[in-house]
Design a protein around this nucleic acid. Structure first.
Lengths: 124, 124
DNA sequence: CCGTATCCCCGAGGATACTG
DNA sequence: CAGTATCCTCGGGGATACGG
């Protein structure tokens, strides 16, 4: 039972790993990816879908994801420009691990809240 | 890789989810979990294993993980106290999703660095 | 050995106003 | 519509010193 995967990956958390995860799992990225996984979105469409995000933060999030090859930005040179954001093929590969994480969170939320209650009670 | 199910979970990223992920995936948590998954650790043992972390941050990280039921703190009332940290059963369930994420990072790092190079080049 | 207590800095990110 | 440009706040977290 202990150590089910003993020779396990010896997963190192080095700086590049952390930086990448920080860029990809930051405050708004998950919500954005969630939207873009469903369908391409315009800028303001994303704002509406994620009401709590500010323009500035949404722009920053999209730029960061774009830089990492997770989303694509398509500019349609119509009269007032239209900009469409899409998830890339690389971005789609992120879905599985992220979903695993969210499913973990869902599944264990009650247990975690219980642990918090116990902990907070013992403190004072 | 089945379960590419498109109409999938409709995964909501609400505040509790984000908060939980922030607590569990924060700057030092992954390194700490990585260590504790191998074997229980004393405080200074962790410091040695993760040289870049400060006392303060390590303490904070351990408290946070403890509060969420991810690690346990055992105090042995010996001479100068000995404190041992262990991963809990709940904590072990985190391993799989986290590993999935790290493996994703490993697998796609080259592609991502390439994307960054392209992006940064187009900018100026 | 295992922490707490302070001080301090720096950067994420909100609020707001303006532009092509 | 899709951003930039500023200003400002707030809190994470490093450095350092002290305590049980």
């Amino acid at each position: 039972m202990r150590d089910t995967a003993p020779r396990a990956a010896e997963l190192r958390i080095d700086a590049p790993h952390r930086e990448l995860l920080d860029q990809v799992l930051d405050k708004w990225s998950l919500s954005v990816l969630n939207e873009l996984c469903e369908h391409p979105c315009r800028f303001n469409e994303l704002r509406r879908a994620i009401p709590a995000v500010t323009q500035k933060s949404l722009t920053a999030t999209l730029r960061r994801l774009e830089r990492n090859g997770i989303v694509e930005r398509h500019v349609v040179a119509t009269r007032p420009v239209a900009v469409e954001y899409r998830i890339t093929r690389l971005g789609k590969t992120l879905r599985a691990p992220i979903d695993a994480l969210l499913e973990w969170a869902d599944a264990h939320m009650p247990q975690i809240e219980h642990a918090r209650t116990l902990f907070d009670a013992e403190i004072e």
